[in-house]
Amino acid sequence: MQREPRRRTYLMCSPEHFAVEYVINPWMDTSVAVDAAAAVAQWERLRQTLVGLGHEVHTLNPQVGLPDMVFAANGAFVVDGVAYGARFKYPQRSAEAKSHQEFYETNPGWGFVAPTVVNEGEGDFAYLPDAHGGLILAGHGFRTETAAHAEAQEALGRPVVSLRLVDPAFYHLDVALAALDDANIVYYPEAFSPASRKVLAQLFPDAVVADEADARAFGINLVSDGRTVVLNTGSDALAAKLRAVGYETAQVDLSELKKGGGSVKCCVAELRH
Rank of each mutant, 00 (worst) to 15 (best):
T30D: 10
S31P: 08
V32R: 15
V32M: 07
V32W: 04
A33F: 06
V34F: 12
A36H: 13
A37K: 08
A37E: 14
A38T: 14
A39D: 08
V40N: 04
A41H: 13
Q42D: 09
W43H: 15
W43I: 06
E44Y: 07
E44T: 15
E44F: 10
L46E: 02
L46V: 02
T49M: 13
T49G: 14
V51Y: 05
V51P: 03
V51E: 15
V51H: 11
L53Q: 13
L53M: 10
L53A: 09
G54I: 11
G54P: 10
H55L: 10
H55A: 09
H55F: 12
E56S: 11
E56T: 15
H58E: 10
T59H: 13
T59Y: 00
L60I: 09
N61M: 14
P62R: 08
P62W: 07
Q63H: 12
Q63F: 06
V64H: 08
V64T: 10
G65V: 13
G65R: 11
L66N: 08
D68V: 04
D68I: 02
M69Y: 10
M69T: 06
V70I: 14
V70Q: 07
F71T: 04
A72V: 12
A72F: 05
A72S: 15
A73M: 04
A73P: 03
N74R: 08
G75F: 08
F77G: 01
V78W: 04
V79D: 01
G81D: 09
V82C: 10
Y84V: 02
Y84W: 07
A86V: 01
R87P: 00
R87C: 07
F88G: 00
F88L: 09
F88N: 00
K89G: 06
Y90P: 01
Y90I: 00
P91S: 14
P91K: 08
R93H: 08
R93N: 12
R93K: 10
S94H: 09
S94F: 04
A95W: 05
A95L: 12
A95V: 05
E96C: 01
A97C: 07
A97P: 02
A97N: 00
A97M: 05
Q101R: 14
Q101V: 04
F103D: 00
F103L: 05
Y104N: 03
E105A: 15
T106N: 13
T106A: 04
P108D: 09
P108I: 00
P108K: 05
G109H: 08
G109P: 06
W110V: 05
G111R: 13
G111S: 11
F112D: 01
F112Y: 15
V113D: 00
V113H: 05
A114Y: 08
A114C: 02
P115G: 03
V117N: 01
V117Q: 05
V117Y: 02
V118Y: 02
V118D: 03
N119A: 11
E120P: 09
G121N: 01
G121A: 08
D124M: 06
D124E: 00
L128N: 02
L128H: 03
P129W: 11
P129Y: 12
A131N: 07
H132F: 09
H132C: 06
G133Q: 04
G134Y: 04
L135K: 07
I136A: 01
I136D: 03
I136P: 03
A138W: 01
G141P: 01
T144V: 01
E145V: 05
E145K: 12
T146R: 07
T146S: 12
T146H: 04
A147H: 04
H149E: 00
H149M: 11
H149S: 01
A150F: 06
A150L: 13
